[in-house]
């Protein structure tokens, strides 16, 4: 699980171009979309959906489904663990 969390942090940082966010500061429990958290937005949701499909073979048809899944890196990791196809 920890390995998956670290992989996801690296992948999210890369695909969303979060240059100034160090992996050490990237808290796995920090809210991704609230202002006080990482501060991502609706376009980032779409990019993470593409990422999940590319890396883990998971297809999410509706971005709204993603709300609970995309709370934090940890919730994404849990979802990936349970649903990954590769």
């Amino acid at each position: 699980m920890e390995q998956l969390i670290n992989d996801l942090k690296q992948q999210i940082k890369e695909v969303l171009n979060l240059e100034e966010l160090s992996l050490e500061d990237f808290d796995a429990d920090a809210p991704l979309f609230a202002d006080e958290g990482i501060g991502l937005d609706s376009i980032d949701v779409l990019e993470i959906i593409v990422l999940l499909e590319k890396q883990y073979g998971i297809r999410l048809a509706n971005p709204k489904e993603g709300k609970a899944i995309f709370k934090s890196v940890r919730t994404i990791a849990e979802y990936v663990q349970a649903n990954r196809k590769k």
């Binding site: 376009i43 779409l46 990019e47 593409v50 499909e53 590319k54």
Partner: peptide, 10 residues
Amino acid sequence: EEMLSPTLFM
């Protein structure tokens, strides 16, 4: 035509 980046398109 799969898994394309919305950030690039917009």
